[in-house]
Computed example of a mutant assay.
Amino acid sequence: MRVSVPTIPALLSARSPVNQVSIAEAVERVSAFLTPGNVTLITGAGVSVDSGIRAYRGEDGRYMNPNYKPIFYHELTDETSKGHAFRQRYWLRSYLGYPAVRKSFPNTTHYAIAALQYAGVVPRLITQNVDGLHNKAIKIAQLNSVHIEESILELHGTLHRVRCKYGHPTDRTIFQDWLSSANPKWKDFAEAATRGNNKIRTNPDGDVAIEHLGISYDDFVVPSCPSCLQENRRNDVHKPDLVFFGESISAAVKQRSYSDVENSDRVLIIGTTLATYSAFRLLKHAVDLKKPVMIINVGPSRADSLLGAEGVEKLDIASGEIMRNVVRNVLGNRGSIDHLVEMMLSSGVRKPPLKDDDDRSAPRAAE
């Protein structure tokens, strides 16, 4: 299946009051849902908002920039001059946006989820996010890397690795250094941006919008792959290790995501509109298997069409408001006697983007 630009069919224009609940009621209901254990958890961009990473959609489910125009897989990998221009656009914007993702910290929801993973309540986590914050959070639990890899499935990949078209892998930090060396002017611009001299804002995929600054991509240099040069060929076609729109999720990842749902007794979904079908189909799979499903998300979602199905419920509330208390309820005394659990439940930032960080009233250039 190819990943297409996500939409929410029959999108609601406002939040549904039917699903809105108080913090106390939400904590009680989510705790009761999780207590039996063996839960597969699916997360989306809403989980990372408290880490300062903007979600694409606002509380009404609409894109916060109505001019949003992603680069497609076939455009990024096109070897003609047109494709080269697309790569200049992508990599300049990603070069400027990646440092904010790299430096971001897990928030209270990430650490609450990590505590549930550590305690065995949530043995399987599927995330649509490419920021790696779930991996950062679970490290505090001192689990080995193999266990972490087996328990977290990054459905759409990660920003933290890059591969050239021939498959040569590169750590993203090293790739950033290559881009800096090839583009000293843009290195200076990026450093000025971190000091607040330029208004650039990071999207969930590490991309930023800069057209409103009157900037051209024409002079940005995308370096050739050093491994390819050693093999006597020049190649500047690089892609972050994530799934682009128009690209297919691998058969192995798709099968594992299905297996994670099948091997659970229930499915919890947090912080996603499920507009991307690769995630929505996991909800449908759980419903077909008659697994109990709970959805925690602010505003309308693609899942709303299934709320009449048996065993599917949705709470309209932000996860950051409830998840610490949920974990304390579910784990009981363990939270006070296990220092790792207590450390996780006292860790995490809550620094969401400003409420007015929304372009719908005065849209910027294409994002």
Rank of each mutant, 00 (worst) to 15 (best):
Y68F: 15
V326I: 01
T170S: 01
D131T: 09
D78G: 08
R334D: 11
G246W: 12
G120Y: 08
S51D: 07
D338C: 07
D219T: 14
L96C: 10
P9Q: 05
L307F: 04
P223L: 10
I317Q: 11
L307M: 13
Y95N: 08
V261Y: 05
T158Y: 01
L179N: 03
P292G: 04
T194Q: 15
D207W: 05
A366Q: 08
R172Q: 12
E149K: 14
D207N: 12
D207R: 05
I269H: 11
D356I: 04
Q230M: 13
H134Y: 10
P123Y: 03
L315W: 02
W186E: 14
H134S: 14
Y277V: 10
S305H: 01
I269C: 13
V221M: 08
T7V: 11
E191S: 02
G52S: 10
S259Q: 15
S250V: 09
V162Y: 13
L116S: 11
L34S: 06
T158N: 06
S13T: 05
F33K: 07
H134K: 00
S224P: 01
V130Q: 05
S16C: 12
S81N: 04
T35H: 03
Y258F: 12
N333S: 14
P36H: 12
L92F: 04
D50I: 03
P6R: 09
L96I: 14
L345S: 08
A114C: 07
H238D: 05
A318Y: 09
E321L: 12
I296D: 06
Q255I: 05
R281G: 00
I249S: 10
P240N: 11
H134P: 03
G348T: 13
G271I: 06
D265A: 11
S336E: 15
S51Y: 11
A114V: 06
N203Q: 13
V261G: 06
R195S: 04
F220W: 09
T276P: 08
P6L: 06
D218R: 11
L153E: 14
K165F: 08
S257G: 13
A309R: 14
I295L: 15
E342S: 15
I71W: 06
R334T: 04
H212Y: 01
P36D: 08
G348N: 07
L242Y: 12
R324C: 03
P352D: 15
L159F: 04
I269W: 09
G52L: 06
S301P: 07
E75F: 01
D131G: 04
L340S: 00
N107C: 05
R57H: 00
V146W: 01
R87K: 02
I296R: 00
G348P: 13
E75K: 10
T127R: 05
R302M: 00
D359H: 03
Y90G: 03
N333M: 13
L155Y: 04
L159C: 00
T273G: 10
N19K: 09
L133H: 10
F175Y: 15
D338A: 02
E231P: 01
D188V: 12
P70E: 11
